[in-house]
Design a binder for these strands. Sequence first.
DNA 1: ACCGTGACGTGTC
DNA 2: TGACACGCCACGG
Length: 107
Amino acid sequence: MAGSFFEDVYEVVRLVPVGRVTSYGAIARYLGTKNARMVGWAMNALAGRTDVPAHRVVNSQGVLSGAAAFETGTTMTERLMSENIPVKNNKIADFPKYFWDPEKELG
DNA sequence: ACCGTGACGTGTC
DNA sequence: TGACACGCCACGG
């Protein structure tokens, strides 16, 4: 599958269940890289695409650090809210409750 | 092959 | 708590 690092990232993001979120660092560790920035960078290249649920990826604190990359500054928040994920001030409330760890869930 | 860039993470002050 | 510095590495030019 490893066509490229980006594709691997996208594939993991697609595996995130509705109503759940994961973090850049979690994806980075799952893919074996030590740099979460690579994941963030891959997500940046995703701007405008709808075939990957980019809104389900936040930073380690549950903050929607990539909200600015969406259509509007509130698009990411609204998408999460529509999936029953509470967002307050660009941050997910009860983040640990909705966190989905690929390494733990997928193995 | 070198350089700049970057939706992060963690440790320190 | 909050702000800052540094490490990490894939990709395009």
